[in-house]
């Protein structure tokens, strides 16, 4: 593994009319990891992805990809937007969409050739969608749509992949298939950066995490950055299921007394969660 980080973001800030969406965001992601980006709703996760890719204007900050400014190295980066970003009633076939992954190489003037069709076909096979190649995209389920979006990124043959909520609203089979593809990419030494919403699966899916709430709360390997402390800082009192996350399989040396203490505090400080507070104290008597 090379020592140059795959992503290095420094002091990135984004301002929307009326509010600061991201404030001095600084973090890095090493090469060859499957990294997750988590944070509460409105934390600026998608905005961060878009700002890194230059899709929303940033008021400050630099983005380096494999040690070079992103703008000079776009061809090594693939982006999988949220499914809601496009109109699925659009008159294109599955293969048309996957072929779009090749357009960056083709530029404005050339049309897809044999190599491009071959790459598109291979990408479709990887996500298990080759039988659907001639379907209109509106005929697909949510999970299938996500898979062809991922196939499009695969057809780019990039080294770094940005995915915006690929697991949101997909069926279990598609979630498995997508995860398998991402793990395969990691085995090939690629870097994957995923906006994720489901904290319960973080420990199973990722080996690097960035916790965001307009600022970076923590970034690093799971054992350091994905703790009850960092999640509490990011989510405040909104997180009810910390106990399930931090019980059982969690490494015992990190299961400090503080975990449950913090949990009880969060619950007690929230006027809406009095019942939960009582519950927490009952479940974790040592918190008193």
């Amino acid at each position: 593994m090379s020592s140059t980080p795959a992503i290095f973001v420094r002091d990135l800030s984004v301002v929307y009319p009326g509010h600061v969406a991201l404030e001095n965001v600084t973090f890095e992601v090493p090469q060859g990891v499957l990294a997750g980006l988590v944070g509460p709703n409105g934390a600026g996760k998608s905005t961060l992805l878009k700002a890194v890719l230059g899709l929303v204007p940033r008021v400050s900050g630099e983005v380096y990809v494999f040690g070079k400014p992103y703008e000079t190295i776009r061809h090594r980066v693939a982006y999988v937007p949220q499914r809601e970003e496009v109109d699925w009633d659009f008159p294109v076939t599955v293969r048309d969409v996957v072929l779009m992954g090749r357009y960056g190489r083709l530029g404005l003037f050339r049309r897809p050739g044999k190599d491009d069709f071959r790459a598109a076909e291979a990408a479709l096979k990887r996500v298990g969608m080759e039988k659907f190649r001639h379907r209109q995209i509106g005929e697909l389920s949510g999970g299938q749509r996500q898979r062809i979006f991922i196939a499009r990124a695969l057809a780019q043959e990039a080294d770094l992949y940005f995915l915006d909520e690929p697991f949101a609203g997909v069926d279990a089979a598609s979630e498995r298939a997508i995860l398998e593809v991402l793990r395969e990419l990691r085995r090939e030494g690629k870097t994957i950066f995923v906006v994720h919403h489901d904290l319960q699966t973080v420990r199973e899916y990722f080996d690097w995490i960035v916790v965001l709430n307009r600022r970076v709360i923590a970034a690093g390997p799971l054992s350091l950055a994905f703790t009850s402390k960092t999640l509490d800082d990011a989510y405040g009192g909104r997180l009810l299921f910390l106990d399930r996350l931090f019980s059982g399989e969690f490494p015992s040396e990190l299961r400090e007394q503080k975990t449950t203490l913090a949990l009880a505090e969060v619950a007690a400080n929230s006027p809406l969660q009095k019942e939960f507070s009582a519950e927490a104290v009952r479940t974790f008597p040592e918190a008193r």
């Binding site: 878009k50 890719l53 230059g54 899709l55 776009r74 980066v77 693939a78 982006y79 937007p81 970003e85 496009v86 109109d87 659009f90 294109v92 969409v97 779009m100 357009y103 960056g104 499009r152």
Partner: peptide, 8 residues
């Protein structure tokens, strides 16, 4: 179809 992706 996808102007955002086109920009990337």
């Amino acid at each position: 179809f996808d102007p955002l992706y086109a920009r990337t």
